[in-house]
């Protein structure tokens, strides 16, 4: 409860959370708000915003831009959440392994992590999605593969500092199995930085997904924000609304997630407030 109160003290975080709920509501209610497929023609092509009953205008094939954005929210939130979950899973597993076992294992895992942090992650993501053909699965996998390293580093650092504490030693003396110690003693205490990372990572995953689909690497069966901007790019001189509104949708969602992440970070580590950034 104290946590919630500290979180609520952040105006930015509260606004962020509200916006996020709104985006989530639009995503869930997309079929109600815009019945029918977002790929179908809804009116004349290139209708400016507000005309022909389309709030945000229509695209070159007469499709409703607002409907595209609503359905795109589903893809963006889904990809953001699932790829973050996978990235957290990989990161926690590797970080826990390195931090708890230490020694050679730690060395090996950290070299592996460093390698993934060195290579240009966006280029790797493009390569992965292109080779395994664009689909929601390959996109989620590619984003998870390039975004787990920071999680592994943070979890490792937490485990390194926690494994020497008395309560862990006590559990060891009591003969608890290492796996049980890791899962029930150490991990719950390392949770707060993981939660903060998760919200920030969801934000960057959404950005990454939009970049991929902008380049034409989106799932061909799913409407997405990046795809909308990509298809509006060549006609930006005559139909600015096609690329402006989906971009605003991405901006608002990502900003909201970042604000929530910062609010969570401050609420969970009041002592670290001043450090900010990164």
């Amino acid at each position: 409860m104290a946590l919630l109160r500290r979180f609520l003290r952040h105006p930015g975080a509260v606004v962020g959370a509200a916006v996020l709920l709104l985006v989530l509501a639009v995503a869930i209610l997309a079929p109600v708000l815009f019945p029918g497929s977002p790929w179908d023609m809804a009116g004349p092509p290139f209708a400016p915003p507000g005309e022909d009953g389309m709030l945000l205008g229509s695209d070159s094939l007469g499709r409703n831009v607002a409907a595209g954005i609503a359905y795109g929210a589903r893809v963006s939130l889904l990809v953001g959440a699932v790829s973050t979950a996978v990235a957290i899973l990989i990161g926690v597993a590797l970080g826990a392994l390195a931090g708890y076992l230490g020694g050679v294992v730690d060395d090996a895992v950290m070299r592996f992590t460093e390698f993934f942090q060195t290579i240009p992650s966006f280029v790797l993501a493009i390569l992965l999605v292109a080779i395994f053909t664009p689909s929601i699965t390959s996109i989620v996998a590619a984003i998870a593969i390039v975004s787990w390293p920071p999680v592994a580093r943070v979890v490792r650092a937490e485990f390194l500092s926690l494994r020497g504490r008395e309560f862990v030693q006590a559990a060891e003396v009591l003969g608890k199995r290492p796996m049980a110690i890791v899962l029930t003693d150490i991990l719950p205490n390392a949770l707060s930085p993981i939660i903060v990372l998760a919200s920030l990572n969801t934000a960057s995953a959404i950005l990454l997904e939009s970049s991929l689909s902008f380049l034409g690497l989106g799932d061909p069966n799913l409407m997405s924000w990046g795809f909308l901007i990509g298809s509006g790019r060549s006609v930006i001189r005559i139909a600015w609304w096609m690329s402006v509104f989906p971009g605003i949708a991405i901006f608002i969602t990502v900003l909201a997630l970042n604000l929530v992440g910062e609010g969570l970070s401050d609420a969970m580590n009041p002592r670290l407030r001043k450090r900010g950034a990164k």
């Binding site: 970049s211 001189r237 900003l255 970042n258």
Partner: peptide
Amino acid sequence: ALAFYATPLFWVGLMLVLLFSV
């Protein structure tokens, strides 16, 4: 800084094109 952190790179490019070129 927070705003640029949340804006897709390619979209910033398009918006600059819209403003300064178109």
